[in-house]
Design a protein around this nucleic acid. Structure first.
Lengths: 131, 131
DNA sequence: TATTTGTTATATTAGCTATATAACAATTTT
DNA sequence: AAAATTGTTATATAGCTAATATAACAAATA
Protein backbone atom coordinates (compact mmCIF):
# COMPACT_ATOMS: atom_id res chain seq x y z
CA UNK A 1 0.00 0.00 0.00
CA UNK A 2 0.91 3.66 -0.44
CA UNK A 3 0.96 4.63 3.21
CA UNK A 4 4.24 5.56 4.86
CA UNK A 5 4.37 5.95 8.64
CA UNK A 6 6.84 8.23 10.37
CA UNK A 7 7.11 6.95 13.95
CA UNK A 8 9.07 10.00 15.11
CA UNK A 9 6.50 12.48 13.85
CA UNK A 10 4.55 14.70 16.21
CA UNK A 11 1.48 13.69 14.22
CA UNK A 12 -0.10 10.61 15.82
CA UNK A 13 0.06 7.42 13.77
CA UNK A 14 -3.71 7.09 13.49
CA UNK A 15 -3.80 10.66 12.17
CA UNK A 16 -1.07 9.91 9.65
CA UNK A 17 -3.11 6.97 8.40
CA UNK A 18 -6.25 9.11 8.15
CA UNK A 19 -4.48 11.83 6.20
CA UNK A 20 -2.76 9.50 3.77
CA UNK A 21 -5.98 7.66 3.03
CA UNK A 22 -7.59 11.04 2.31
CA UNK A 23 -4.65 11.84 0.04
CA UNK A 24 -5.14 8.55 -1.77
CA UNK A 25 -8.79 9.41 -2.35
CA UNK A 26 -7.95 12.95 -3.45
CA UNK A 27 -5.39 11.56 -5.89
CA UNK A 28 -7.97 9.19 -7.30
CA UNK A 29 -5.91 6.17 -6.33
CA UNK A 30 -8.93 5.04 -4.39
CA UNK A 31 -12.39 5.63 -5.75
CA UNK A 32 -15.85 5.78 -4.18
CA UNK A 33 -17.22 2.28 -3.77
CA UNK A 34 -13.76 0.82 -3.17
CA UNK A 35 -13.27 -1.10 0.03
CA UNK A 36 -10.45 -0.28 2.37
CA UNK A 37 -8.23 -3.13 3.53
CA UNK A 38 -9.30 -4.80 6.76
CA UNK A 39 -7.96 -3.16 9.88
CA UNK A 40 -5.91 -6.25 10.62
CA UNK A 41 -4.38 -6.40 7.15
CA UNK A 42 -3.49 -2.74 6.96
CA UNK A 43 -2.12 -2.81 10.49
CA UNK A 44 0.09 -5.74 9.57
CA UNK A 45 1.27 -3.96 6.41
CA UNK A 46 2.17 -0.83 8.34
CA UNK A 47 3.60 -2.66 11.30
CA UNK A 48 1.23 -1.02 13.74
CA UNK A 49 -1.50 -2.20 16.04
CA UNK A 50 -4.98 -3.13 14.83
CA UNK A 51 -6.62 -0.58 17.13
CA UNK A 52 -4.55 2.24 15.69
CA UNK A 53 -5.91 1.59 12.21
CA UNK A 54 -9.37 1.05 13.64
CA UNK A 55 -9.23 4.49 15.24
CA UNK A 56 -8.26 6.01 11.93
CA UNK A 57 -11.16 4.34 10.13
CA UNK A 58 -13.61 5.66 12.68
CA UNK A 59 -12.15 9.11 12.29
CA UNK A 60 -12.75 8.86 8.55
CA UNK A 61 -16.30 7.73 9.23
CA UNK A 62 -16.88 10.71 11.53
CA UNK A 63 -15.67 13.01 8.80
CA UNK A 64 -18.22 11.40 6.48
CA UNK A 65 -15.62 10.00 4.11
CA UNK A 66 -16.18 6.27 4.52
CA UNK A 67 -18.90 3.96 5.76
CA UNK A 68 -18.01 1.13 8.11
CA UNK A 69 -20.18 -1.95 7.76
CA UNK A 70 -19.94 -3.80 11.04
CA UNK A 71 -18.08 -7.08 10.73
CA UNK A 72 -17.72 -6.68 7.02
CA UNK A 73 -15.55 -3.81 5.87
CA UNK A 74 -15.16 -0.13 5.11
CA UNK A 75 -16.29 1.51 1.87
CA UNK A 76 -15.38 4.90 0.45
CA UNK A 77 -18.51 6.99 0.11
CA UNK A 78 -19.37 8.61 -3.19
CA UNK A 79 -19.13 12.37 -3.59
CA UNK A 80 -22.89 12.41 -4.08
CA UNK A 81 -23.50 10.70 -0.76
CA UNK A 82 -21.35 13.21 1.07
CA UNK A 83 -22.87 16.53 0.05
CA UNK A 84 -20.59 18.96 1.91
CA UNK A 85 -22.84 20.07 4.74
CA UNK A 86 -22.66 23.54 6.29
CA UNK A 87 -21.22 21.83 9.33
CA UNK A 88 -18.38 20.41 7.25
CA UNK A 89 -17.73 23.80 5.67
CA UNK A 90 -17.53 25.32 9.12
CA UNK A 91 -15.08 22.61 10.14
CA UNK A 92 -12.84 23.27 7.16
CA UNK A 93 -12.85 26.98 7.91
CA UNK A 94 -12.06 26.25 11.53
CA UNK A 95 -9.09 24.14 10.47
CA UNK A 96 -7.99 26.73 7.95
CA UNK A 97 -7.99 29.70 10.30
CA UNK A 98 -4.91 29.06 12.47
CA UNK A 99 -2.85 28.10 9.43
CA UNK A 100 -3.76 31.30 7.58
CA UNK A 101 -3.25 33.42 10.68
CA UNK A 102 0.24 32.02 11.19
CA UNK A 103 1.02 32.66 7.57
CA UNK A 104 -0.17 36.26 7.87
CA UNK A 105 1.83 36.95 11.00
CA UNK A 106 4.95 35.53 9.40
CA UNK A 107 4.46 38.00 6.60
CA UNK A 108 2.95 35.89 3.85
CA UNK A 109 0.65 37.65 1.42
CA UNK A 110 -2.81 36.45 0.36
CA UNK A 111 -1.30 35.63 -3.00
CA UNK A 112 1.44 33.49 -1.48
CA UNK A 113 -0.99 31.47 0.60
CA UNK A 114 -3.35 31.20 -2.36
CA UNK A 115 -0.49 29.92 -4.44
CA UNK A 116 0.42 27.28 -1.88
CA UNK A 117 -3.18 26.24 -1.62
CA UNK A 118 -3.49 25.76 -5.36
CA UNK A 119 -0.18 23.93 -5.44
CA UNK A 120 -1.45 21.41 -2.91
CA UNK A 121 -4.58 21.12 -4.98
CA UNK A 122 -2.88 20.54 -8.31
CA UNK A 123 -0.27 18.20 -6.84
CA UNK A 124 -3.08 15.92 -5.77
CA UNK A 125 -5.19 16.31 -8.85
CA UNK A 126 -6.06 13.10 -10.67
CA UNK A 127 -3.20 12.63 -13.13
CA UNK A 128 -4.05 12.30 -16.81
CA UNK A 129 -4.35 8.73 -18.07
CA UNK A 130 -1.11 6.97 -18.73
CA UNK A 131 1.00 9.32 -16.67
CA UNK B 1 -6.52 41.13 27.63
CA UNK B 2 -8.29 39.80 24.56
CA UNK B 3 -7.56 36.11 25.10
CA UNK B 4 -10.42 33.75 25.83
CA UNK B 5 -9.60 30.20 26.96
CA UNK B 6 -11.95 27.28 26.31
CA UNK B 7 -10.97 24.63 28.87
CA UNK B 8 -13.14 21.97 27.21
CA UNK B 9 -11.52 22.40 23.81
CA UNK B 10 -9.48 19.66 22.20
CA UNK B 11 -6.94 22.36 21.44
CA UNK B 12 -4.40 22.52 24.30
CA UNK B 13 -4.48 25.71 26.37
CA UNK B 14 -0.93 26.70 25.45
CA UNK B 15 -1.88 26.32 21.80
CA UNK B 16 -4.99 28.46 22.28
CA UNK B 17 -2.82 31.16 23.81
CA UNK B 18 -0.33 30.95 20.94
CA UNK B 19 -3.05 31.22 18.32
CA UNK B 20 -4.86 34.11 19.94
CA UNK B 21 -1.67 36.09 20.35
CA UNK B 22 -1.00 35.51 16.65
CA UNK B 23 -4.52 36.70 15.91
CA UNK B 24 -3.92 39.81 17.98
CA UNK B 25 -0.79 40.55 15.97
CA UNK B 26 -2.57 39.86 12.69
CA UNK B 27 -5.36 42.21 13.71
CA UNK B 28 -2.84 44.90 14.53
CA UNK B 29 -3.92 45.00 18.15
CA UNK B 30 -0.33 44.26 19.00
CA UNK B 31 2.47 45.78 16.99
CA UNK B 32 6.11 44.88 16.48
CA UNK B 33 8.20 46.25 19.32
CA UNK B 34 5.39 45.80 21.82
CA UNK B 35 6.16 43.71 24.86
CA UNK B 36 3.96 40.81 25.82
CA UNK B 37 2.74 40.67 29.41
CA UNK B 38 4.94 38.69 31.77
CA UNK B 39 4.16 35.00 31.88
CA UNK B 40 3.02 35.36 35.48
CA UNK B 41 0.69 38.26 34.76
CA UNK B 42 -0.92 36.71 31.71
CA UNK B 43 -1.27 33.40 33.50
CA UNK B 44 -3.03 35.14 36.39
CA UNK B 45 -5.30 36.97 33.95
CA UNK B 46 -6.27 33.77 32.17
CA UNK B 47 -6.48 31.71 35.33
CA UNK B 48 -3.92 29.21 34.12
CA UNK B 49 -0.51 28.11 35.22
CA UNK B 50 2.63 30.12 34.58
CA UNK B 51 4.27 27.24 32.73
CA UNK B 52 1.39 26.98 30.31
CA UNK B 53 1.90 30.57 29.17
CA UNK B 54 5.65 30.09 29.18
CA UNK B 55 5.27 27.13 26.82
CA UNK B 56 3.18 29.28 24.52
CA UNK B 57 5.77 32.05 24.46
CA UNK B 58 8.48 29.60 23.56
CA UNK B 59 6.33 28.22 20.80
CA UNK B 60 5.96 31.75 19.44
CA UNK B 61 9.71 32.20 19.66
CA UNK B 62 10.29 28.97 17.75
CA UNK B 63 7.99 30.23 15.02
CA UNK B 64 10.09 33.38 14.85
CA UNK B 65 7.28 35.68 15.94
CA UNK B 66 8.65 36.99 19.22
CA UNK B 67 12.00 37.33 20.94
CA UNK B 68 12.33 36.30 24.56
CA UNK B 69 14.89 38.28 26.52
CA UNK B 70 15.89 36.11 29.44
CA UNK B 71 14.71 37.50 32.78
CA UNK B 72 13.32 40.60 31.14
CA UNK B 73 10.39 40.04 28.80
CA UNK B 74 9.10 39.08 25.38
CA UNK B 75 8.99 41.42 22.38
CA UNK B 76 7.10 41.07 19.12
CA UNK B 77 9.56 40.97 16.27
CA UNK B 78 9.19 43.35 13.36
CA UNK B 79 8.14 42.08 9.97
CA UNK B 80 11.54 43.12 8.69
CA UNK B 81 13.34 40.97 11.25
CA UNK B 82 11.28 37.93 10.33
CA UNK B 83 11.76 37.75 6.57
CA UNK B 84 9.66 34.68 5.78
CA UNK B 85 12.37 32.10 5.25
CA UNK B 86 11.98 29.19 2.84
CA UNK B 87 11.78 27.00 5.92
CA UNK B 88 8.78 28.98 7.18
CA UNK B 89 7.11 28.79 3.78
CA UNK B 90 7.59 25.04 3.82
CA UNK B 91 6.07 24.92 7.29
CA UNK B 92 2.99 26.86 6.21
CA UNK B 93 2.54 24.58 3.23
CA UNK B 94 2.94 21.57 5.49
CA UNK B 95 0.22 22.92 7.78
CA UNK B 96 -1.99 23.81 4.85
CA UNK B 97 -1.85 20.45 3.13
CA UNK B 98 -4.02 18.25 5.39
CA UNK B 99 -6.67 20.97 5.62
CA UNK B 100 -6.89 21.37 1.86
CA UNK B 101 -6.84 17.62 1.30
CA UNK B 102 -9.74 17.12 3.68
CA UNK B 103 -11.65 19.89 1.95
CA UNK B 104 -11.03 18.30 -1.43
CA UNK B 105 -12.13 14.86 -0.33
CA UNK B 106 -15.29 16.30 1.18
CA UNK B 107 -16.06 17.80 -2.19
CA UNK B 108 -15.03 21.41 -1.75
CA UNK B 109 -13.86 23.23 -4.85
CA UNK B 110 -10.70 25.32 -5.16
CA UNK B 111 -12.93 28.37 -5.26
CA UNK B 112 -14.70 27.46 -2.02
CA UNK B 113 -11.47 26.96 -0.13
CA UNK B 114 -10.03 30.10 -1.69
CA UNK B 115 -13.09 32.00 -0.53
CA UNK B 116 -12.76 30.72 3.02
CA UNK B 117 -9.08 31.59 3.03
CA UNK B 118 -9.75 35.15 1.94
CA UNK B 119 -12.55 35.45 4.46
CA UNK B 120 -10.19 34.55 7.28
CA UNK B 121 -7.76 37.04 5.86
CA UNK B 122 -10.17 39.95 5.59
CA UNK B 123 -11.76 39.24 8.96
CA UNK B 124 -8.36 39.77 10.57
CA UNK B 125 -7.28 42.70 8.46
CA UNK B 126 -6.36 45.84 10.34
CA UNK B 127 -9.61 47.79 10.65
CA UNK B 128 -9.70 51.35 9.33
CA UNK B 129 -8.99 54.06 11.89
CA UNK B 130 -11.86 54.91 14.15
CA UNK B 131 -13.81 51.72 13.46
C1' DT C 1 -17.76 -25.36 8.13
C1' DA C 2 -13.82 -22.50 8.53
C1' DT C 3 -12.05 -18.09 7.97
C1' DT C 4 -12.29 -13.26 8.19
C1' DT C 5 -14.46 -9.24 9.87
C1' DG C 6 -15.33 -5.24 13.05
C1' DT C 7 -16.45 -4.93 17.98
C1' DT C 8 -15.64 -4.96 22.74
C1' DA C 9 -13.02 -5.57 26.91
C1' DT C 10 -9.00 -5.42 29.86
C1' DA C 11 -4.33 -4.19 30.84
C1' DT C 12 0.07 -1.92 30.32
C1' DT C 13 3.56 1.45 28.87
C1' DA C 14 4.89 5.90 27.36
C1' DG C 15 4.35 10.63 26.57
C1' DC C 16 1.94 15.01 26.79
C1' DT C 17 -0.86 18.54 29.20
C1' DA C 18 -1.53 21.15 33.10
C1' DT C 19 -0.91 22.31 37.66
C1' DA C 20 1.69 23.24 41.97
C1' DT C 21 5.82 24.80 44.58
C1' DA C 22 10.10 26.35 45.04
C1' DA C 23 14.41 28.37 44.35
C1' DC C 24 17.83 30.98 41.40
C1' DA C 25 19.92 34.81 39.11
C1' DA C 26 19.47 38.66 36.24
C1' DT C 27 16.82 42.63 35.23
C1' DT C 28 14.04 46.40 36.42
C1' DT C 29 11.85 49.47 39.54
C1' DT C 30 11.60 52.09 43.65
C1' DA D 1 21.25 50.06 47.39
C1' DA D 2 17.13 47.52 48.34
C1' DA D 3 12.93 45.54 46.71
C1' DA D 4 10.19 43.72 43.27
C1' DT D 5 9.73 41.47 38.91
C1' DT D 6 11.44 38.60 35.37
C1' DG D 7 12.39 34.21 32.77
C1' DT D 8 14.68 29.85 34.03
C1' DT D 9 15.15 25.49 36.09
C1' DA D 10 13.86 21.63 38.94
C1' DT D 11 10.77 18.32 41.07
C1' DA D 12 6.38 16.23 41.75
C1' DT D 13 1.68 14.98 40.74
C1' DA D 14 -2.74 13.98 38.29
C1' DG D 15 -5.25 13.18 34.19
C1' DC D 16 -5.55 12.18 29.57
C1' DT D 17 -4.16 10.39 24.98
C1' DA D 18 -1.51 7.30 22.01
C1' DA D 19 -0.09 2.88 21.15
C1' DT D 20 0.50 -1.77 22.01
C1' DA D 21 -0.85 -6.50 23.50
C1' DT D 22 -4.24 -10.29 24.15
C1' DA D 23 -8.42 -12.20 24.04
C1' DA D 24 -13.00 -13.32 23.10
C1' DC D 25 -17.48 -12.51 20.57
C1' DA D 26 -20.76 -12.59 16.86
C1' DA D 27 -21.79 -11.54 12.25
C1' DA D 28 -20.32 -11.83 7.54
C1' DT D 29 -17.88 -14.13 4.01
C1' DA D 30 -15.42 -17.83 1.54
Amino acid sequence: MFIQIEPQSDVPIYEQVTRQIMEGIARGEMKPGDTLPSVRNLAADLGVNMHTVNKSYHELEEKGIITIRAKSGAIIRSTEERALTPEQLRQIEKNLKPVVVEGMVLGATVEQIEHMMKKVFSDLQIPAEGV
